[in-house]
Each structure stands twice: as structure tokens, then as C-alpha cells.
Amino acid sequence: MKWLDITFKLSVVVGVLAYIFKELLVPTVVLQMNKNDFMSYSKACAQAMDSNWYIEQTGNTRLSASSNIQLLDCHEYDLLQKHMLKYGVSEYALSELGLKALELHQRPASEIAEQHKFTER
């Protein structure tokens, strides 16, 4: 019975460690390793989609061709996003990175106000 007890406790320890590894350590490492590239691809893809919206309205086939080429930046974004999701990075974390890339995060007024305050008189 002692071996059963040891086996059980070992299984619990291994299971907890595996859980920590898979759910915490790996996603954190993957996020840190790829966040700069992800933000860069986010920005590039957003620009590509934005440009494409207006270019499609021009009816100019050559402009459209260049815009379609530019949309390959979104392919890079997609691939990296899938890779990060595969290794457990949460969608919330990726959304936050995407917003930071586009500088759409909330900025308090105090950030701007500080620049215009007397520091001494």
C-alpha cells in the first residue's frame, strides 16, 4: 500500500507541475518571445485592411493589386496568432497586445496635462 500512496502523491505532484508548465509557464514564455512581432504584425495588418477599404472604392486595378499584396501582412499576423494560441496564450492577452499596437488603449488626461504644468515659478 505504501507504493500506491507514493505513486498517488507523485502523480499529483507531476500533474500539478505539468499544469503549471502548460497553463502558466509556456504561455508566458511564448507571449514574451513573440509580443513585439505580434504587435508589429497587428499594426501592419490593420494598416493593410484600412488602406484596402479605401482603395477598393477607387476601382483602380493596379492599386487593388498592390493592396492585395500588402494584405499578405495579415497572413503573417494570422499565422503568429494561431501559433501563440496553440501554445496557450489567451485571446484576451492577444487582444490587449493588438490594442496597444494600434495605440487605442485608454490614455488619461493627466498624461497630457503634466506636460503643461509649471514645475517652478
Binding site: Q47, A48, S51, N60, R62, L63, A65, S66, S67, I69, Q70, L72, D73
Partner: peptide, 21 residues
């Protein structure tokens, strides 16, 4: 080259193998 044919829009006018429309 990727910029020339994509985001830079250069190939809109400088198109084809002779780089001119």
C-alpha cells in the same frame, strides 16, 4: 521589392517588367 509592389504602391504606375504603365 515587397514594399515596391505592395505598401509603397510604386507598381501602380511603375508596373510590368519594364516598370512603366
Amino acid at each position: 521589392a515587397f514594399l515596391f509592389y505592395g505598401k509603397g504602391r510604386c507598381a501602380t504606375c511603375h508596373s510590368g517588367d519594364l516598370f512603366s504603365d
